[in-house]
Amino acid sequence: MKLEEFLKLVANEFGPGGYEQRVVELIKKNISKYSDSVKIDKSGNLIAIKRGNGKGKLLLEAHVDEIGLVVSKIVSQDYIRIHMVGGVDFKILPGQRLRIFGRDGKIYRGVVGMLAPHLQKSTERNKAIEYDELFVDVSMNVEKPKIGDMAVFDVPTSEFGDGLITGKALDNRSSCAVIFEVFKSLSKIKHEVDVYALFSVKEETSGIGATTGGYAIEPDVAIILDVTHADVKDPTAPDIKLGYGPALGFGPTVDKEIFSDLKKIALDNNIAYQLEPLPGRSGTDADNLQLVKKGIKTGLVSIPLKYMHTPVEIVSLKDLKETVRLLTSYIISLNLEG
């Protein structure tokens, strides 16, 4: 399966924090043939191993969970209320169609309602509609969703524009697709280190999966894969653009040596990259993984992404491919023996 096909497949799947089983199973099914072993741990993380010559342990980590919504109240047969799981801007919700995954295994439809302009008072027009006032129409379901059921946006994943992909959950299924592609290439390449892939759960809510997964694996080196804001028009924001390669993070949560190794690999192999200064914490699983056990050396590679946490996130296929090249070259170069 091609990188973009795999990305579409996993981005369309349902998996908000705590309910990642469907995504985890989907990745497991596809990555098994490129791995020496795969297992799902107690926390629900997926761990795939591709053995080298046992000369050290490298961890590639990406969180599989996405932002979502949870049914918080039943108003009537026709209406429910929702709240966010991870950071979901209420301003993107009106008019949105939702897929609600019942814990009973059924999938329900929801439509986030919005009063038509004809009936709005002028005083209501200039107001953002927050969670307390948002309502979801579930009238079209014969059976109804229940409190605690989780929902995600129902939007397709589409290729468009100049080699771009738009859809939901590209944060962080893009990174999952990159690791999948790295494993595919490792099956044809000789490498010394054992490579562990950790597809971790519950990042958007707190980062539990990376901590527990990292604890079990105890790698010598860990590379965290996540997404980062691209094309931000803020004078103090780093100059990260879509289509200019992965962003290499550096700052307190990133090991200096790993950062400079990655940068050197990129330069030596003519791989496009960008720099992401991270004053303070990174807001990724790197922050958690660095402090596991007696500390783990972590690097951070981020895929530029626009409109994060919306149903129309955008990534560049070129950035994904360059990230695959960077990681593959890094793995080949690595020998952690002694």
Partner: peptide, 23 residues
């Protein structure tokens, strides 16, 4: 915000992005 449009006779896909909630 967060919706998809189809534009013109060629049905070009466009998305209405919105500044990420983090920013």
């Amino acid at each position: 915000p967060g919706k998809r449009l189809r534009i013109g006779d060629k049905n070009i896909l466009g998305v209405i992005g919105f500044k990420a909630i983090h920013l």
